Structures are given as C-alpha cells and as structure tokens.
Computed example of a mutant assay.
Amino acid sequence: MHAASLLHLLQFASPSLPIGAYSYSQGLEAALESGLVKDEAGAGVWIAAHLMQVVARFEAPVCWRLMQAFAARDAEAVRFWTEHFIAARDTAEFRAETVQMGYSLSRLVLDLGVADEPLRAILQAVSEVPLPTAMAFAVAALDMPHEEALLATLFAWAENQVLACVKSVPLGQVAGQRLLLSLRPQIEQAAAVARQLQDHGLSNWAPALSLLSMRHETQYSRLYRS
C-alpha cells in the first residue's frame, strides 16, 4: 500500500475522527445493564458474536457494495444500497446513529474538499446518508484500497465496542487492549465474509440485539446516546 493510502486509512479509522462514534454503544450498554456482559470474557463473547452475526453479514457487505458503487460512479447502486441499509435499521436508536454519523462524516469529507464533482453529485443525490455510504464516499474520494478500508472500518467498530467496555464494565486499559488483540481473527474473518457474501445471503436478523436497543432508548441511567 502506498504511504498516502495508509495515512488516509489511519486518519479515517481513528476514534478521534469527529463523527461521534464514541457516543454510541450499539446495544452494549443495555446488555451491561441487563447483566449479559459482566467481565472481560463476556465482553469478548458479546463483541465477537455481534461482529460475526450482524456486522459481517449485513453492515460490512453493504459497505463493501457501496465502495464498489462509488468507484464505478454508479449512482443507482449507491442509492439502492443506501436506502436498503437505512430501511434495515430496526430501532429508532440504530437509525438515528447511522444517519447522524453518516451526515457528520460526509460533511467532513465535503468540507475537506477531497472529492471530485461526480462523486459529490452522487452523494448529494441521496436524501439521507448513513455511515456506510459516507465511509464508502470517503474511500472513493481519497482513493483508498477497498480491502484495507473494509478492515479499517471493522477495526474501528470493534475498537469502539472495546472502549465502551473499558468505560462501562469497567475494564482496565491493558484488559481492553488484550480484548482488542483477541478479536483480530474475527475481524479478518468478518472482512472475508463481507467480501464474499451474495446479495441473497445478507441478513441483520438479531432480535435480542434489537430488543436491547429498544430498551436502551428508555434506560434510566446511561452514558451513550439513544
């Protein structure tokens, strides 16, 4: 990978990217409140299951398709997968999260002035921009390699989940790093699944996670947005 591409990946996978990822737990805080996650081992099981059963089978494959669509300047494919992703957000919390972060990331890329006019036109034709669309737009604008960008996106998701556990389980910093390191095989596997999965195989069926997200919307004490 060229140095410029690597540096772009490091920048856009960083938790310091100002899109608000740190303020969401994706159902994890409700799982903590319910006692489903209590310690480092339980956190590892939870994050790995969420990664492989939901992210790898729906969110990452959609992001992969959007990267290809932007690269091909295929506005219809961008519109289709964007609308498909938003329609699949099955709680108000999950929908608000992806739209808020997608808006923030897309505005950031537009304000940086790194996207050409055809790319900007494709993005601006979409009424609402979820996070996968905004990330794919950034990948195209900065000419990042798709496979590495997908891995970076998955790593950023896992890192955010681990940071939530560090703050809320709570776990120590060393335990958090140990947990993140242990997730490397699952992150690689999730990327492979996302690249290979056919359209008919996409699924975000996770009713327990959806119920936890709904519960989090009215949870009395919480650190994360709903």
Rank of each mutant, 00 (worst) to 15 (best):
L105F: 02
A158E: 02
V62A: 04
V78Y: 03
T98I: 11
V169K: 06
D74V: 02
M214D: 07
D199Y: 10
H200T: 15
D39P: 13
F94L: 15
S221N: 13
S23W: 00
Q53T: 15
W157Y: 15
A88V: 06
A206I: 05
F155L: 10
L202F: 01
R195P: 07
R57Y: 09
Y224K: 09
E76A: 13
M135T: 10
R65E: 14
A208L: 12
A92L: 08
M1T: 12
A13V: 07
E33S: 11
A115E: 00
E76I: 09
H2D: 14
A149K: 01
L179C: 12
T133D: 00
L119D: 02
L171H: 12
H2R: 05
S127C: 01
P207H: 03
P15M: 01
A71M: 05
Q196R: 15
S106I: 02
D90N: 08
E147W: 02
A115W: 00
E128N: 01
A30F: 03
R120D: 10
A125G: 13
G113D: 10
L209M: 04
G35P: 02
A77R: 14
S210C: 09
A87F: 04
G20C: 04
L171R: 03
H2I: 09
W157L: 11
L183T: 02
T218W: 13
T98D: 14
M214A: 09
F155T: 13
L28P: 03
L154H: 10
R120L: 10
Q177L: 15
V109Y: 06
V54I: 09
I47T: 10
V109W: 07
Q198R: 11
L131G: 05
V54G: 11
M214H: 14
D90E: 14
Y24L: 01
V126I: 05
M52P: 11
P15T: 06
K167E: 15
L119Q: 01
A138P: 00
S210P: 02
F80V: 12
G172V: 13
S106T: 09
A49V: 12
L112Q: 15
A30W: 00
V99T: 05
L6P: 12
A69P: 12
L32F: 07
R184V: 13
L183R: 05
W205K: 12
S25K: 01
Q161T: 09
Q173K: 15
V55E: 15
L150V: 08
R120N: 05
W46R: 01
V109D: 06
A69I: 06
S34C: 07
I187M: 12
